[in-house]
Amino acid sequence: MPLHLKLPGPDDTAAVAVRLAPHLRPGDCILLTGTLGTGKTHFARALIQKRLSDSGLWEDVPSPTYTLVQTYEDKTSEIWHADLYRLTDPNEIIELGLDEAFETAITLIEWPDRLANLTPDGALQITLAMDGDARTLTATWDDPRLSLLGAENG
């Protein structure tokens, strides 16, 4: 069953990411779908910063649009943040080392349609869409942790 959330502002998008962040572990993959300006990078940044700050760390989380991949390391896992918009060939996924990272790291992937048949099984799929000034979030995940996204004070 997909989960639907209405997110009135950017802080609400960040709050979902912050709720989910502590429950992730290596091998978890989040696919972030949505057009320009729907908050994909905003979601990823909030999630990464929550995990880093829980580990007593602080680091820049720049947009990966030009670098394609930014990597981080918290106390329990590596985190890969990728923006695949500029990719033209699925073989480039392997060149980037993403296929390995899917197994060993927490991965956050923007523009995941570029993965084609390299899309990992069991990924959390999040779709963000515009709704006036608000956003809607639709999430599907074959994992009981899906419900954590919606818990208001979890």
Binding site: Q49, L57, P62
Partner: peptide, 9 residues
């Protein structure tokens, strides 16, 4: 970078 919170790097 971030929401204004700063700490040790």
């Amino acid at each position: 970078l971030g929401s204004g919170k700063k700490g040790a790097k």
